[in-house]
């Protein structure tokens, strides 16, 4: 579990506890969770099983290719989904760093079995060449898709997966990990660690093979 040396000093649980602060959707903007030292009581990144609807719409990827959601985008794969916009400087870089790390952990399973899908919540600004540059910034490999499209189409996707907010700059920092074929979806609110996301991905993959997840 402790993959890298620097993590040994800080327990994963304590790290996860910090993730909640001020980031959960619905919390007032001022960080309340950390009033004084007493509030360092451990809180997990909340996660739970959710129901999503994958509406059929046409979208565009970072290369400007027309893709169908969910058919072309998800297909039969296990996916991890987050939302972002390219001009976001506060939250999105953290989400990007998490996906970037996760992409490394997935190795050659990326694209073949698993896809990372980042959906822009600001499709009016985020035209494909903008997404392309953003993808390059994170050194995204094939299998990490950045999606935009008509605002109505994108909003419909976001509504279906529970990620829509009327003010796009207030988009939730949350991840969805799911298997569309089996209809199993888990939502992580806050900054889930790449390890948390990966272990859920592996559970889903193992579930498909009909055996217990490898620990």
């Amino acid at each position: 579990m402790m993959r890298r040396g620097w993590r040994s000093a800080v327990s994963a649980r304590a790290l996860a506890a910090l993730a909640l602060a001020a980031v959960l959707a619905g919390l007032p903007p001022i960080a309340r969770a950390e009033d004084g030292k007493a509030s360092a009581s451990p809180k997990e990144v909340s996660s739970g099983s959710v129901t999503v609807r994958l509406h059929e719409v046409p979208l565009l990827d970072q290369d400007g290719r027309a893709v169908r959601f969910p058919g072309d985008v998800i297909g039969g794969r296990v996916v991890v989904i987050d939302t972002f916009f390219t001009t976001c400087t506060l939250i999105c870089p953290i989400l990007g760093a998490i996906f970037s790390d996760l992409q490394g952990q997935l190795g050659d399973r990326l694209d073949r079995e698993v896809r990372l899908i980042s959906i822009s919540v600001d499709p009016l600004t985020d035209i494909p060449p903008r997404l392309k540059k953003y993808a390059e910034q994170w050194e995204a490999r094939p299998g990490w898709l950045f999606l935009t499209g008509g605002k109505k189409a994108v909003d419909r996707v976001l509504e279906g997966i529970g990620m829509y907010s009327s003010d796009f700059s207030e988009h939730p920092s949350a991840f969805l990990v799911g298997d569309a074929r089996e209809g199993k979806w888990t939502r992580f609110n806050g900054f889930a660690s790449p390890e948390q996301l990966r272990s859920r991905v592996e559970e889903l993959l193992a579930g498909r093979r009909g055996k217990a997840p490898a620990r």
Binding site: L15, P93, H171, A192, P194
Partner: peptide, 30 residues
């Protein structure tokens, strides 16, 4: 600390969040 990952500092310059001049801002509930 939230995600438990280490990244290059150039991805997270102070000005991204605190803005040039340092007055701060609000975004995404943060």
């Amino acid at each position: 600390p939230g995600a438990g990952i280490r990244a290059p500092g150039s991805g997270f310059p102070c000005a991204n969040c605190h803005l040039a001049g340092g007055a701060g801002q609000s975004e995404g509930g943060v």
